[in-house]
Design a protein around this nucleic acid. Structure first.
Ligand code: ZN
Ligand code: ZN
Ligand code: ZN
Ligand code: ZN
Lengths: 129, 129
DNA sequence: ATAGCGAGCGTTATATTGTAACGCAATAAC
DNA sequence: GTTATTGCGTTACAATATAACGCTCGCTAT
């Protein structure tokens, strides 16, 4: 049983869920000034918890955060992100096959993976026209 | 023909080449105070050039930089990194097969990739014991 | 019940990472 | 030679993230 979220955690998750793209920690903070968020640690602590429970993801190449939109995310071995440089849109994808290739490398090299980051930067189909 | 590197670019590359792990921009700066590096822009400009020419890589999940140690790096479709959380060691690997899986996804989704980030965080074989 | 524990909170201050913008110097192109 | 380009050195600043403190609340072992 995952515990219920606290007020701050809910505020941050709601902000990310309503956004149509990734948000920086500080833009989340700005959005929530009126609901009682006053300082970075409050946002970062909420983000940390939400990351741990898998409700949101961090995009390392953007220093930004996004709500998970894949209901089956936790059941996938690895998750990748395709980030459009033009419109900012982010697509989350499940790397089922990629995961196998990575596992091969890990096994060959005796590396025990705790977290995998896969991020593609480029141009999405709509933006290519 | 790649142009010759400037003095600052050479200093930064040498620092990264001699290091036995990734370095932050500011630790490079500290290392080079005595050789004339005085302020962040000098380091960041050198890093930018070295990244563009493929002589170094940026580790997004670490906000750090590392000299490329794969002589064939440019000929590989994608490069991945395995980062040990315990000893800080970084292994660069060529993702030949992974690249094919990614390309499938890109083709299926009409996504034009410009840069691919693959970073594994975990425990390396020596550290597992 | 109550004392202790753990998680989260609100706050202040600070650390770390990265850029904008300026004028100048060296170099390459014409 | 004149003119673009590229990089340099500098100041100032923006953006991202964390340390540390004391407090409250809910749980739980005694
Ligand atoms: Zn997800
Ligand atoms: Zn797009
Ligand atoms: Zn390389
Ligand atoms: Zn290790």
């Amino acid at each position: 049983m995952g515990k219920a979220l606290t007020k701050n955690q809910t505020l941050v998750l709601d902000t990310l869920s309503k956004a149509d793209g990734p948000l920086s920690a500080y833009s989340i903070l700005d959005d929530l000034r009126d609901e009682g968020m006053q300082a970075p640690p409050q946002v970062y602590r909420a983000l940390e918890k939400l990351l741990k429970t898998g409700l949101i993801h961090r995009l390392e190449s953007l220093n930004a955060y996004i709500a998970c939109r894949d209901p089956d995310c936790v059941s996938h071995p690895v998750t990748g992100f395709a980030i459009c440089e033009t419109c900012g849109d982010v697509s989350e994808f499940a790397g089922e096959k990629i995961s196998k290739q990575l596992k091969d490398w890990e096994d060959d090299n005796g590396f025990l993976v705790e977290k995998t980051t896969i991020e593609l930067r480029g141009i999405c189909r709509p933006c290519k026209g």
